[in-house]
Amino acid sequence: MAIVGVVASGNLEALFERTDDESACRVEISTAAHGFQPLWEAVLRDFVARGAGGLRISINDGGARPDMVALRLAQGLRLMQGPEA
């Protein structure tokens, strides 16, 4: 398990948990900002392509921009690959 970020304006938190299914990465996003689905999908496609199988990622969004989303996802993934995760 790993948690990164906080729910504040322009920021988000992402909770990373392991699953048994190595072939899938499940992402749940909770956001009050509507109409940004294509943007989320683009950021997530990039992220998953780098190998995020076996993860469940739950996001609470405070209105983060795509670069912040990418940063938090990368931070979380690094923690999950670390020795303590």
Binding site: I3, V6, V7, E13, L15, S30, T31, A32, S58, N60, D61, G62
Partner: peptide, 8 residues
């Protein structure tokens, strides 16, 4: 209030 939650 349509406000986002935080897990903790």
């Amino acid at each position: 209030f349509s406000l986002p939650a935080q897990f903790d």
